[in-house]
């Protein structure tokens, strides 16, 4: 063992760790970013606090379930039931379209599609792109495609004699379809994420038992991915419920005397009503209670849903990380 020879060069003097290395720049910058984070959360709290403090008091069963048939600007009598009904109708109808298509697409992308083919990349590109299209453009699309092209064509074939358009006008069904198109990426992304979180071993186990790919997807993979699909659906509903721009021309009505009776009727809408109350009110100070009340109802609907979705998603992601 030559290393133990006494001729080893002298040791460098020991350096101590206690020397003060307080880094003012690091400390300051870390504080600054923390402050930014805090500021964002504070603004969020401020908005929610303002809305719920001012609007929470006005919530009553009469407001929630009352009609607006006398005068929707009348603080004493106005209720938001027709709007709640309209919003619920359009988002429920929307999920019927968007969930099957979104889940199928996500299954294709994770289970079937060859990972690196240009074709798969085009689908992904389209999904990403769709997520970034401005909502007002969806409104234009709904008008140009669903109402004029699809609705107009239906009228020509189904009701050639009708003087009034039946399908070729703003309607519940077209608003829902427009929103379905808009929320498609939300469902696809959430579902894909949860599909990826499922361990490969589970699929292999199923295939090793002689199950076909379809059986594996339907019986093993999708049931496991249910929380993710649920999250996608909830996020889509929450996003759609708050959107106004896409339904401005495709179905929302300023005022209607009765609830929508069929798919081709227009509807009153909660989010649109917030816009109407904010901008068309004859006396904004007087109608403030119903305005705040309506906002609270809308927020309860969208925000509560969002919170649930975020919590489920955080859990899915944690599982994903544990697997990685």
């Amino acid at each position: 063992m030559t290393a133990s020879t006494p001729t080893a060069p002298p040791a460098p003097p020991a350096r101590r760790f206690r020397a003060s290395t307080f880094e003012p720049v690091s400390f300051f910058c870390t504080g600054l970013t923390g402050l930014a984070t805090f500021l964002i959360l504070a603004i969020l709290a401020l908005i929610l606090g303002n809305i719920f403090l001012q609007g929470g008091a006005g919530l009553s069963p009469r407001f929630m379930f009352g009609n607006a048939d006398k005068d929707m600007f009348d603080v004493a009598s106005a209720g938001v039931w027709p709007m709640v009904f309209g919003t619920a109708a359009r988002v429920i109808l929307m999920t019927l379209f968007v969930i099957p298509i979104g889940v199928t697409t996500a299954s294709y992308l994770t289970e079937y599609a060859p990972a690196l083919s240009p074709f798969t990349r085009i689908i992904r590109g389209a999904v990403n792109n769709l997520a970034g299209v401005p909502s007002i453009v969806f409104g234009l699309f709904g008008l140009g495609f669903f109402i004029s092209a699809v609705g107009g064509t239906l009228d020509v074939f189904l009701y050639p004699d009708s003087p009034k358009p039946v399908w070729g006008k703003a309607a519940l069904i077209w608003a829902s379809l427009t929103l379905a198109v808009m929320t498609l990426p939300v469902v696809i992304v959430a579902t894909e994420e949860s599909l990826r979180a499922i361990p490969l071993g589970l699929r292999e186990a199923s295939l090793a038992l002689g199950a076909t790919k379809l059986q594996t997807v339907l019986r093993v993979v999708l049931p496991q991915a249910l929380p993710g699909i649920l999250t996608g659906g909830i996020l889509a509903v929450s996003r759609a419920a708050g959107e106004v721009a896409p339904i401005l021309f495709t179905g929302a009505a300023y005022y209607m005397a009765s609830l929508p009776q069929s798919l081709t009727d227009q509807f009153m809408d909660l989010a649109y009503h917030v816009f109407v109350l904010s901008t068309q009110s004859p006396d904004i100070e007087k109608t403030r209670p119903i305005l705040y009340g309506t906002v609270v109802v809308l927020l309860l609907l969208t925000f509560a849903l969002n919170l649930v979705a975020i919590l489920i998603r955080a859990r899915v992601r944690r599982n994903l990380r544990r697997l990685a």
Partner: peptide, 20 residues
Amino acid sequence: PGIELLSGIPSVVLGFFALI
């Protein structure tokens, strides 16, 4: 999730908050 919650506020509500 706290910050992501901000994306859950509909834009019409942000517009309302800005306006009022």
